[in-house]
Amino acid sequence: MSTIHKSPWLLHYDGSSCNGCDIEVLACTTPVYDVERFGVINTGNPMHADIFLITGGINSQNAEVVKQIYNQMPQPKVVIAVGTCACTGGIFKECYNIKGGADTVIPVDIYVPGCAARPESIIDGVVKGVALFKEKAAALAAEQKAN
């Protein structure tokens, strides 16, 4: 039986945001919400991460950074956009330097709306992301077998 979904390590990156969602993500790791009970570790290293959790929108400066982080993560991987800014660009959408949501530069799997997204909905998003992570791992394993 595959247990890969029991160990989703999370990388958090904050783009162009007001830091509201950022703080809510950190709240998830506190004793009140404790995401570690799902095996989630908040890692700072893209090479060890399975889930890329992005808050805030994409601007001309961070576009390359976000792409690089995504490319450094080994397969299977899942991207979760947390908050309206990460989904669409949000309140900053009309700014001259904003390209839009995270999906303007990398493929996003799960969208968690809210301004700010509440810790409960972030955890819901992560749990959905974990389910998808398992699917992707199975697909990858099947593909490797076929080759």
Binding site: T3, I4, K6, S7, W9, G39, I41, D50, P74, Q75, P76, A137, L140, A141
Partner: peptide, 10 residues
């Protein structure tokens, strides 16, 4: 679980 996953990653 963590160890097993690490060996399954790309």
């Amino acid at each position: 679980y963590d160890l097993k996953k690490l060996f399954e990653k790309e």
